[in-house]
């Protein structure tokens, strides 16, 4: 749905994007992480047709953003970092103006505005001035405005910045809902726990380029249906030699590290493979105290990628 190939963009000789490449599939909820100045906002602006590119290609839904900006605008909903609102309008006037701006007319116009009011939870405050809304409410209003024309792709640049914990939770739930509705979402954020909670994949960006982790991955799979290799931490009571032997003899499993009744094992295959390994250990007479899937969390992976590069 989003295809970015070797994108380059400079500002006064300073390179903001330096050959960045990204492919986001239809229906994905894709995260974009990187330090400040990595090029996230520039990428979002390019995809939302606000900035022309120096070289490379960027396509949304198969449409080139440079050549056919108007068609791309019909496909996307863009929420910039620190989005603004017209303080002197009422909530309904604000939504009606943008419904007009997206050329919605007649029944579709009314339905879109009513749906946006409902979606933002501001139906009862539709005649209130936007100025009277809290920051979180304004953010919900702007997101609802972004969805007025039923975009296929959402581009969200730091949408959770400045939100209180409750508003962040609401935003996460709303994004999960939109994802469930089949909308493709590209979201940049510094709040890694939020991304980890909602995203299916995360792209790493640093200095305008694709950053890679220790295994050379520039895209981290967070919620893949079938992860081929998983790491398990196993703790046993007593002598672990027998347990090591059982693991190493099991199909698709091998011990990576073991000491003092603890071992780290790699299991290739689906969850059933791990279940059969656990069964083999128990049937083999090993007293298993703990058998945990160890996922390297996003924060650790982020630190590994970007701290090492900065060091």
């Amino acid at each position: 749905m989003i295809d970015v190939e070797q994108l380059r963009k400079s500002f006064n000789g300073k390179c903001a994007l330096d050959g960045f490449t990204l492919h986001v599939g239809a229906g994905d909820l894709f995260g974009l992480v990187g330090p400040n100045g990595a090029g996230k906002t520039t990428l979002m602006k390019v995809l939302s047709t606000l900035l022309p590119v120096d070289s490379g290609t960027a396509q949304v839904g198969g449409v080139n953003v440079s050549a056919k900006a108007r068609e791309v605008k019909r496909l996307i909903g863009y929420l910039p970092d620190q989005p603004g609102v017209y303080q002197d309008m009422s909530v309904r006037e604000f939504l009606e103006f943008f419904a007009d701006a997206f050329q919605l007319t007649g029944a579709r116009h009314r339905a879109a505005v009513d749906r946006a009011l409902e979606r933002s939870g501001l139906a009862e405050r539709s005649e209130d001035s936007v100025e009277q809304l809290s920051f979180g409410m304004k953010q919900r209003l702007v997101l609802a405005k972004t969805l007025l024309h039923d975009p296929k792709v959402l581009l969200l640049d730091e949408p959770a910045t400045g939100l209180d914990p409750l508003a962040r939770i609401e935003l996460r739930e709303q994004l999960k809902q939109l994802h469930a509705e089949g909308i493709t979402i590209l979201i940049s954020s510094h709040i890694l726990s939020d991304l980890e909670d909602i995203c299916t994949q995360i792209a790493l960006i640093g200095a305008g380029r694709n950053a890679t982790d220790a295994e050379g991955h520039s895209v981290l799979q967070l919620r893949a249906a079938q992860t081929p290799v998983r790491i398990y931490e196993i703790e046993v009571i007593g002598d672990s030699a027998a347990a090591v032997a059982i693991v190493n003899s099991a199909a698709g499993a091998r011990v990576l590290d073991s000491s003092m009744g603890r071992m780290v094992a790699e299991v290739t295959g689906a969850d059933e493979q791990a279940a059969s390994l656990l069964r083999a250990l128990v049937v083999g007479g090993v007293n298993v105290l703990r058998f945990d899937h160890r996922a390297l969390d996003l924060e650790e992976r982020y630190k590994t990628v970007f701290r090492e590069k900065n060091a």
């Binding site: 939302s48 047709t49 605008k73 910039p80 989005p83 609102v85 997206f102 702007v142 405005k145």
Partner: peptide, 16 residues
């Protein structure tokens, strides 16, 4: 004023 109140991006990414 659209830049200062950060509403210009919303206008430019609409169909206006």
């Amino acid at each position: 004023i659209e830049k200062e109140q950060r509403t210009l991006a919303g206008l430019l990414t609409s169909l206006l």
